[in-house]
Nucleic acid binder design. Structure first.
Length: 450
RNA sequence: GUGAGUGUAGCUCAGUGGUAGAGCUCCGGAUUGUGGAUCCGGCUGUCGCGGGUUCGAUCCCCGUCACUCACCCCA
């Protein structure tokens, strides 16, 4: 019998869960500081809720659930596992619009499923940590979302992350300026998005392959080269760099798309030069794959990771697909699994997440002493300690060895001598020191780490 | 969906056309009121699965499944 979890799915053993809960705790804490409220939605959605929202590739990767009864024969599906947390949010907003606040701000940490082929840092079941603000077109929303994501990364110990920023409207303007026909712009975006991955020559080849005219491709690549040069010159001053890129974009677009450029200027201005603003990098080559973005788009990058730690953007039309009337919205998704991968590789988890499942283990002297051992455990728990009771009467050596292997820092022993005197022997397994103390003093001697 | 690589003990892996090994883990003992270190002893395998070639296949061939990596796309 094969005991592996299903392909692309994982079991989380206790140490894994502690790490996940630590990161999720920081994320939820920061999001709450920004006034976001928690939301949960079902793992399963009606299939028509999901289809057509993510583009053709997205539809292919949706996990479908066969319809009960005749579906088993026909292969017909009426349900599907959720593919992300944004579309379910849009459905919720459309459904409960009357009861939700005018500016609904929610965070959501739940698993999503994709019928993808697993790879390093990529799974078929993985957690997303989404934060979205509904109901406003103001760039204050973008600034707050980026700031919150930056706070999360800083609190987790990241120092060198980059918040890449671009705008779908600016991208369209760039492609217009390069003479790329609207019908080819989607293809061109996919190629441009790979600039940091495959380099200038690689993108040139991709653009040609996708039918973008050479003249336009050359113009775009020339522009990106000049931006890259500017970045090298302005390395120490990201705000100056961002303003420089804005000016270059304005020149490239020749007065077209003033609203989109103005939005980017607003975001840069609102975040300012310090704090999260120091991590903000305008990146005209950023495109992102999902089809529902309409305005600003973001992606979170760290050195030495091929993929991104998260991404997001503005999607002012998605809720309208459910509701009929348009409701503006913007959000960011952090990829829990990738954050964990990077933090694991860099040893970024705090020591007090350690393995110890208890502060003290109560040994069992013999079968007659079991009731008293359980009473002692109860007393120590009342005093606020995490207490494990060895589950059998066994040689003391065995019991000590077990406590040691589980990294439990203290053990108690109540043998015949101690019982007669009303004392408890407490041993510190790290130092080897042990002492006999009065029963009421045991908790004080052990203390409480963390 | 496309391409490549790997499947041998609980784990990490060696190995050979002639009935399979190491290290770690685990268990027992040295040590019947004391763990980590050391020493001694011990357990474990349909060699992924199915078929073919062969006197004989864990090894060679075909198929299949699983995993890993890359592409596509994405967190």
């Amino acid at each position: 019998m094969n005991t592996n979890p299903a392909r692309g799915m994982r079991d989380f053993l206790p140490e894994d869960v502690r790490r996940r809960q630590y990161v999720i705790g920081v994320i939820a804490d920061v999001y709450q500081q920004y006034g976001f409220e928690p939301l949960e939605t079902p793992a399963v959605e009606n299939i028509e809720t999901l289809l057509g929202k993510y583009g053709e590739e997205g539809d292919r990767l949706i996990f479908k659930i066969l319809k009960r009864g005749e579906g088993a024969e026909t292969g017909q599906a009426d349900l599907a596992l959720r593919y992300d947390l944004t579309v379910p949010l849009a459905r919720v907003v459309a459904e409960y619009r009357a009861t939700l606040p005018k500016f609904f701000k929610r965070y959501q940490v739940q698993p999503v499923w994709r019928a993808d082929r697993p790879q390093k840092g990529r799974f078929r079941e993985f957690y997303q940590c989404d934060v979205d603000a509904i109901g406003s077109r103001s760039m204050i929303v973008e600034a707050e979302l980026l700031s919150a994501a930056g706070d999360v990364l800083s609190r987790l110990g990241f120092t060198s992350y980059t918040l890449r920023l671009n705008h779908r409207g600016v991208l369209a303007g760039m492609l217009d300026a390069a003479g790329v026909p609207a019908s080819l712009q989607g293809e061109a975006l996919v190629a441009l998005d790979k600039l940091d991955k495959v380099g200038r020559e690689g993108v040139a080849a991709e653009l040609a392959q996708r039918g973008v005219p050479d003249a336009g491709a050359g113009m775009l690549l020339e522009f990106f080269s000049s931006v890259a040069a500017a970045q090298r010159d302005a390395k120490a001053d990201p705000t100056a760099f961002n303003r420089d890129v804005l000016d270059r974009l304005e020149a490239l677009l020749g007065g077209a798309r003033p609203d989109a450029l103005g939005e980017l200027r607003d975001v840069v201005r609102l975040l300012g030069p310090g704090g999260t603003g120091a991590h903000l990098r305008l990146d005209p080559s950023l495109a992102r794959g999902l089809s529902y973005y309409t305005g600003a788009i973001f992606e979170i990058a760290v050195p030495d990771l091929a993929g991104s730690l998260g991404g997001g953007g503005r999607y002012d039309n998605l809720i309208g697909m459910f509701l009929g009337s348009e409701v503006p919205a913007c959000g960011i998704s952090l990829g829990l699994e990738r954050i964990l991968v990077v933090m694991g590789e860099r040893g970024m988890f705090p020591d007090n997440l350690g393995k110890a499942p208890a502060d003290v283990m109560v040994t069992i002297w013999n079968l007659d002493a079991v009731p008293d051992a359980l009473r002692l455990a109860a007393e120590l728990r009342s005093a606020g300690l995490r207490v494990e009771v060895y589950p059998e009467a066994d040689k003391l050596g065995k019991q000590f060895k077990y406590a040691s292997s589980r990294a439990i820092p203290h053990v108690t022993v109540v043998g015949d001598d101690e019982a007669a005197a009303g004392l408890v022997t407490v041993k510190d397994l790290a130092t080897g020191e042990q002492r006999r103390v009065a029963r009421g003093d045991v908790a004080g001697v052990i203390g409480r780490p963390g």
